[in-house]
C-alpha cells in the first residue's frame, strides 16, 4: 500500500471520529440570538402621545448626559499596534474604561482577554502573552507601537515608561529582541484619525504608511496596508527614509 493510500485511510478514520456537534451549536446559537432579540428588539405598544413624551424624555436625558459628563474628556487613550490595532481609554487610575478594536486581528487577540474595567498593566501582560501565542510577536516581528494621548506630558512620559518596563520584562524571555516604538500621539489631526479608522488600523501605523506613500510615488496605501510593523520599517530602510515618521525614539 502506498503512503498516499495510507494517509487517505487515516484521514477518513479521523473524519469519522469528529464528534457531530453541528446541531447543538446551531441550537445554542439560535437561542442566544433569540435572547438578544428579546432583550433589545422589543415592540412598542404605545400611542403616539406616549411615544412623543418618551422621545422627549430620552432627548433631555441625552443632553444632560452630554453636558454634565466631563469624565470622558479626562480619559487618556492608549494606542497599541502589533498588527492587531487597538485603542484603550484609561482613567486617571489607569483602569481601562473603553476599547476600540480596529481589525479582525485585534478582535482575535482580545477574544479571551478580560479587559474592560481592568488595570491597563495586567491587560498588557495578557496582550503580550496572546500576541506571542498567536505569533504576532516573535523574533522576526519583535515590535509594538505604543503611545498615550490626552494626558499631561510628564504623566504621559511616566506612564509610558512604566508600561514599557512592564511589557519588556514580561516579553523578554520569549522574544529577546522585543522592542517598543513610541508614537507621537499628542498631535493627532482629525483627518489622520478618520483615515486610520477608515482603513481599520491604529493612528501610528497609518502615519507610517502615509509618510512612506508621500515620499515614494511608486507605492500606494494598498501596497502597504497588509504589512506588519517590521515590514514597514524594512520598506523605510530600503527607501532610505531615516526615521520612523512622527515617532520618537
Amino acid at each position: 500500500m502506498m503512503n498516499k493510500d495510507l494517509e487517505k485511510i487515516i484521514y477518513a478514520a479521523a473524519e469519522r471520529d469528529v464528534p457531530n456537534v453541528q446541531a447543538s451549536i446551531m441550537a445554542e446559537y439560535r437561542m442566544k440570538k433569540a435572547q438578544n432579540k428579546h432583550r433589545f428588539g422589543f415592540r412598542l405598544p404605545l400611542r403616539p402621545l406616549q411615544l412623543a413624551s418618551m422621545m422627549l424624555i430620552l432627548l433631555i436625558i441625552g443632553f444632560v448626559a452630554m453636558y454634565d459628563h466631563p469624565v470622558q474628556d479626562s480619559y487618556a487613550t492608549v494606542y497599541i499596534d502589533i498588527n492587531p490595532s487597538l485603542e484603550f481609554d484609561i482613567d486617571e487610575e489607569d483602569i481601562i474604561r473603553d476599547a476600540r478594536l480596529w481589525n479582525d486581528e485585534a478582535t482575535l487577540l482580545l477574544a479571551d482577554v478580560d479587559y474592560m474595567d481592568q488595570p491597563l498593566y495586567d491587560v498588557l501582560d495578557d496582550i503580550v502573552d496572546q500576541a506571542i501565542t498567536l505569533n504576532y510577536l516573535n523574533e522576526n516581528h519583535p515590535y509594538i507601537i505604543l503611545d498615550i494621548a490626552n494626558r499631561e506630558e510628564h504623566e504621559r512620559i511616566n506612564t509610558l515608561a512604566l508600561v514599557e518596563n512592564r511589557m519588556k520584562h514580561h516579553a523578554s524571555d520569549r522574544v529577546p529582541n522585543f522592542d517598543i516604538i513610541r508614537g507621537n500621539a499628542q498631535n493627532i489631526q482629525p483627518d489622520e484619525q478618520s483615515g486610520a479608522h477608515n482603513h481599520n488600523m491604529s493612528m501610528q501605523r497609518w502615519r507610517i504608511i502615509q509618510s512612506i506613500v508621500e515620499e515614494n510615488s511608486d507605492l500606494d496605501v494598498e501596497d502597504l496596508i497588509d504589512k506588519n510593523i517590521g515590514e514597514l520599517m524594512k520598506v523605510m530602510q530600503e527607501k532610505n527614509m531615516p526615521n520612523m515618521p512622527g515617532m520618537r525614539p
Binding site: I9, I10, A13, A14, R16, D17, P19
Partner: peptide, 8 residues
C-alpha cells in the same frame, strides 16, 4: 471517543 483513528 475517537474509536476509528485510535484503532488504526
Amino acid at each position: 471517543k475517537a474509536a476509528y483513528l485510535r484503532e488504526i
